[in-house]
Design a protein around this nucleic acid. Structure first.
Lengths: 182, 182
DNA sequence: TTTTAATTTCTGTAAAGACAGAAATTAAGG
DNA sequence: CCTTAATTTCTGTCTTTACAGAAATTAAAA
């Protein structure tokens, strides 16, 4: 399986981006390849196309599955596992966001809470420092609860919100402190 | 300068988080220390407190300055540079977001645009693949334009939006396609 | 059941980034 | 201007992660 220069460029870049977003380059490149492919690919296809060792492909596929970004799809007449990537961009975004929250922000929230509690009884920590710890904690809690509310919105609604742009700020001013308007 | 176990825990964790968000552990730890400190610290203070080589501190401080997260603040009677971190959590968040957009998403947007254009004339790229490239590009453009609209909102307004939660979805349905209501 | 293909695990090493410390440069103080 | 402190740059190495390939295990086909 050959890649055109444009596809190579795309996949290489996706790989670079992936390292910034929590997975290694090879994992991200495999994800890109499976996303762009219009049919299920097996591990050997991937090895050949990307020039990566079979075992590395195997481990990377396992990681992508743990993120829920790809799944196994068997092909009639071929006993090898084939893989397909999620094709809906919104869903991909949702999954990555959710998974990163779970792997990173949730543990951070725990640590920040523990530290806030411990700091209450730690005479070595100045009051001003304690306040700052509390502010970071409140900020993260607010962000996460806001995210929790938003994550269930259908893409179409999110789309509308994004397109409303700064008009949203005006609406918040009008409605933010009122009971529901129906 | 001694750190209590709680402060150590906090700073260590911030360091781990930092590596997930684009800076190395030491850079993030120094940022945490300067944030929690209630006075300007010089490079030697930081070396001693975190047990890091002076040169590493120097380079890390330079990086934090490039993110705009800290600045030099001279202290009377001491010719050494002292440093203070931004203290407003919202502002820190805004800066990190903006800077990451600039360093990562803007280049990605460029590459995606180039690839979309190149793919138009690449006979090796299937139409379905081209559609997928376009979808990712549209998604990112939408996200970035939405972000552009939101980033100028004052923290108080953002706070309101976050607190409105799923009520926002209802408002989008009511107002999303209408002209402004005044 | 055996054979063979496919996958996974393991292990050593390659690569990249982080780091410490020496050397060089800069700048403040005397 | 000289001295010395402070900072920066450079370089070698340490650490961590990624990776390749061999070996082991699993599972499908004959």
């Amino acid at each position: 399986m050959q890649l055109s220069p444009t596809m190579q460029k795309y996949i290489l870049h996706w790989g670079e981006m992936g390292t910034r977003w929590g997975v290694n380059r090879t994992v991200a490149q495999i994800h890109a390849l499976l996303y762009l492919a219009n049919r299920p690919l097996n591990a050997e296809d991937i090895c050949e196309t990307l020039g990566v060792a079979r075992s590395n492909v195997s481990n990377s596929l396992k990681e992508l599955q743990s993120w829920g970004l790809i799944r196994v799809q068997h092909v009639l007449g071929d006993r090898r596992d084939h893989f397909v990537a999620l094709q809906d961009v919104w869903e991909i975004f949702r999954l990555i966001t959710e998974e990163r929250k779970r792997r990173e922000l949730d543990p951070t929230l725990s640590v920040l809470r523990e530290c806030a509690i411990e700091a209450e009884s730690d005479p070595l920590i100045e009051a001003a420092t304690r306040v700052k710890m509390d502010k970071v904690l409140e900020f993260l809690e607010l962000l996460l609860s806001g995210y929790d509310d938003f994550k269930h919105l259908p893409p179409g609604v999110v789309l509308k919100l994004l397109k409303m742009g700064s008009k949203l700020g005006q609406l918040a001013a009008m409605f933010g402190n009122d009971e529901e308007q129906k």
